[in-house]
Simulated assay, not measured.
Amino acid sequence: MRNLDFRHVASACAALLVFMAHSAIAKDTPEKPALTMAVGGLPGLYYLPVLTASQLGFFKEEGLDVTLEDFAGGSKALEAVVGGSADVGAGAYEHTIFMQAKGQHYRAFVLMGRAPQIAVAVTKSKADTLKSLADFKGAKVGVSAPGSSTDLVLTVALRKAGVQRNDISVIGVGSGATVISAVSNGQVDALSNVDPMMTKLQRSGEVKILVDTRTVKGTQEVFGGTMPAATLYASDSFIQKNPKTTQALANAIVRADRWLQTASDADIVKMVPAVYLLNDKALYIDAFHNVREAYSPDGLMPADGPPTALRALASFDSRLDPSKIDLKATYTNDFARKAAEQAR
Rank of each mutant, 00 (worst) to 15 (best):
H8L: 10
F19G: 04
F19K: 01
S23C: 15
A26V: 00
T29A: 14
E31K: 10
P33V: 00
T36S: 09
L45H: 12
V50N: 13
L51S: 07
A53Q: 05
E61Y: 00
L64P: 10
A72Q: 14
G74H: 10
G91V: 05
G91Y: 05
G91H: 08
F98Q: 10
Q104W: 01
M112D: 13
M112I: 00
G113F: 03
A115C: 06
L130M: 05
L133C: 09
A134P: 08
S144H: 09
A145T: 11
G147C: 06
G162M: 03
V163M: 09
A177W: 09
I180K: 15
S184P: 01
N185F: 08
Q187Y: 04
S192Y: 07
V194A: 12
G205N: 07
V207R: 02
T215K: 04
T215Q: 06
V216I: 15
V216E: 15
F223S: 03
A229R: 01
I239K: 03
T246C: 12
K270C: 05
M271D: 13
A274V: 14
K281G: 13
L283H: 12
A287N: 08
H289E: 10
A294W: 00
G305I: 03
P307R: 03
L320M: 01
L320Q: 02
P322W: 02
P322L: 05
D326H: 12
K328L: 05
F335C: 02
F335G: 04
